[in-house]
Design a protein around this nucleic acid. Structure first.
Lengths: 119, 119
DNA sequence: GTAACCAGTATAACGAAGTATACCAGATGA
DNA sequence: TCATCTGGTATACTTCGTTATACTGGTTAC
């Protein structure tokens, strides 16, 4: 990296962008965050419903992730006192900001699978 | 999930989409994959150059990831016999298919940072 | 009455991901 | 000559994400 490119601004932009990328990865990192967000944004509200909608997830992981996501205002948890007691999870506006990332990833995953089938 | 919704096709689509999402997460999962892809797609070619462009990464992790990514045809590694010996990493067309995901994530990270600054 | 659903918690353990630190041989520059 | 660059490897260690399994107390359906 020499002065010329630095003056042109590229390295600064590059540094900013890699930081933005790493921030995002930090927030949605892990195996389960995005599938959970996706599930809730798709209208799944109940614990077992969300659990069933995500192949491979365990009760423990879902519980742990939902707890963190509630703390971070990614989901809203409401208890409807019964009986029977019902618990509802809802997506917040903040949660919905991940929409386009999720859509891109779904798109990539589908195309990837299509290509594997072609071969 | 009852028969009515099943007939309407939603659950099948949902199942397909969550699978696509999980596939994608599997491929680009981890802390370093996307930053490395991004760096190489930005034109960084040399090992140390890539290393310096990604804050926090260690030599070991970069080495390990690049090795895997070469096996998976995500990058092309070329050795120019010297002296001095030079090694170049290049992005493959496959690697570039992650472009839109990365762009969305950079966009999200920037907006996120803007909002934090506002508060 | 017993089986299955709800919304989880408890405990233990595994293993991959990641970190820290040092080191290598060869080339380059002051 | 000594430091610094190159492209990594080696070793040891830690963390924590994830899995597995079991269990709870209350509710509803057959």
């Amino acid at each position: 990296m020499n002065e010329a490119t630095s003056v042109l601004g590229k390295p600064r932009v590059q540094a900013e962008e890699v930081q933005a990328l790493q921030d995002t990865i930090y927030v949605i990192g892990g195996k389960w965050r995005l599938p959970i967000i996706n599930s809730i944004c798709n209208g799944n509200k109940r614990f077992r419903e969300i659990e069933r909608s995500i192949p491979g997830i365990t009760t423990r992981m879902l519980s742990k992730e939902l707890r963190e996501m509630e703390l971070n205002k990614l989901v809203k948890r409401t208890v409807h006192p019964g009986p029977p007691v019902l618990v509802e999870y809802e997506s917040t506006p903040y949660c919905k900001t991940f929409g386009s990332i999720i859509l891109e990833m779904i798109r990539w995953g589908k195309e990837h699978r299509d290509k594997l089938r072609e071969e």
